[in-house]
Design a protein around this nucleic acid. Structure first.
Lengths: 221, 221
DNA sequence: GAATCCCTTACAGATATCTGTAAGGGATTT
DNA sequence: AAATCCCTTACAGATATCTGTAAGGGATTC
């Protein structure tokens, strides 16, 4: 089993719960747990310098802001920095995020080794994930459907620029006029109509209101 | 100190962490922890029936959906049901929610006794909250500014029911028809128009699309 | 009981949205 | 070069949205 593990989790309750569970279920010799990304990164650096590097990082993605100044403000940034520092470090993400797209990019761009959703089985899955990753396999929570990520519709820049103006209360005619003024192209009201109608189909919505609402709720704009 | 406490928290890690902390820091004789609201409510009922009621409920607000059928799907519903069942029960909410408006309505409508934000000090605050509530005082996490809640505009049930249907893609005429079918009142298209127009003013938006977008972004619906 | 206020409702006119048809242009294929 | 595909654009007709006016009813005030 891993000898030296570090945990980044800003919720005190969750942090405590994970630490307890890992002590109970796994024979990890040294487990350090931190509430701030910056502290985790410092520990990784120091450990590496002392020729006693950590073998596994377990980290959340979202870290709440508070009165303390931070350089690294998210799990994603921590992962990137940790990968650059220590390419052979194993990384498991433990987060509420369940958007396959987001999770997919973590595997692709940052070569994480496991992904566990917070939830009713979070601790059971985390223990499994650590075991799998220890044996050089990857682990993904079963409720995450990574193949779905490939089927999702991407919004391109033109879509986004239209949606932004509509969200702001402009009519399609006004959006068209604005684009013409700014020499953006395409810019006809008709083309804007067509683009938006296409999005109705893709997102299974009926009108501008329900489309913008759905996209806002899903955090896509 | 409280002799009999029940905990409702669906994240296994957080649940474990809270339970551990309370065991360590407080002399609670009996602490039951559950991952589902329905189970909590059943336990409350049984305990009351056996003349050994719980004294304190600590609950989250959001409970993730899974494959299991649920009657009570949110902390808010659980609180309402628990209050109706056992008016003298002390209730502390422990959640990520930090919107003063939402928190205020919990104190006003459901007479909760304490509110603790999940976060880096979550466990320290929770222990404090339990001590305060035990001495018949209320506790609110210091980072929550409840006075700010009084300046914001409230959405009432009628507003919400209209907005929900519009978000779903119905036209105002369809919303009016639906309300008539359901014997909801008021229900005329004209009144619905008026309500929504009022919200345009209050939220400084220009049309249905921008209104729904803004409310979705701010998490108000 | 009259006056007032507020909410509900009806209606109407100006705009905006949504959908379909059709034409033209650039890029790619055959 | 012709055929094809895809994107842009124009236009038009049916609906929907937004705003204003006005009438009626219930509750409260005077």
């Amino acid at each position: 089993m891993f000898k030296k593990v570090i945990l980044a989790e800003d919720f005190q309750g969750e942090n405590h719960g994970i630490a307890e569970t890992l002590h109970e279920k796994l024979a990890i010799e040294e487990l350090q747990n931190e509430l701030y990304c910056d502290k985790v990164f410092t520990r990784l650096k120091v450990a590496l310098k002392n020729n006693a590097p950590f073998e596994l990082l377990v980290t959340d993605l979202f870290f709440e802001e508070d009165h303390i100044d931070r350089k690294i403000t998210s799990g994603r940034e921590l992962i990137k920095a940790a990968r650059a520092l220590q390419p052979n470090l194993k990384i498991i993400v433990h987060s509420m995020e369940n958007n396959p797209l987001q999770i997919n990019t973590l595997f692709k761009e940052h070569k994480i080794n496991g992904y566990v959703c917070k939830g009713r089985n979070g601790m059971i899955e985390l223990v499994n994930a650590i075991n799998e990753v220890f044996h050089n396999r990857t682990y993904v929570s079963p409720q995450v459907n990574l193949t779905a990520a490939n089927n999702t519709i991407e919004l391109d820049d033109f879509d986004r620029s239209i949606l932004k103006e509509l969200a702001n209360g402009l009519t399609k005619k006004e959006v068209s006029d604005k684009f013409k003024r700014e020499n953006k192209t395409p810019n006809s009201e008709s083309t804007i109509d067509k683009r938006i109608s296409k999005l109705y189909d893709e997102y299974e919505t009926k009108n501008t209101t329900s489309l913008l609402f759905k996209l806002a709720k899903e955090g896509k704009i």
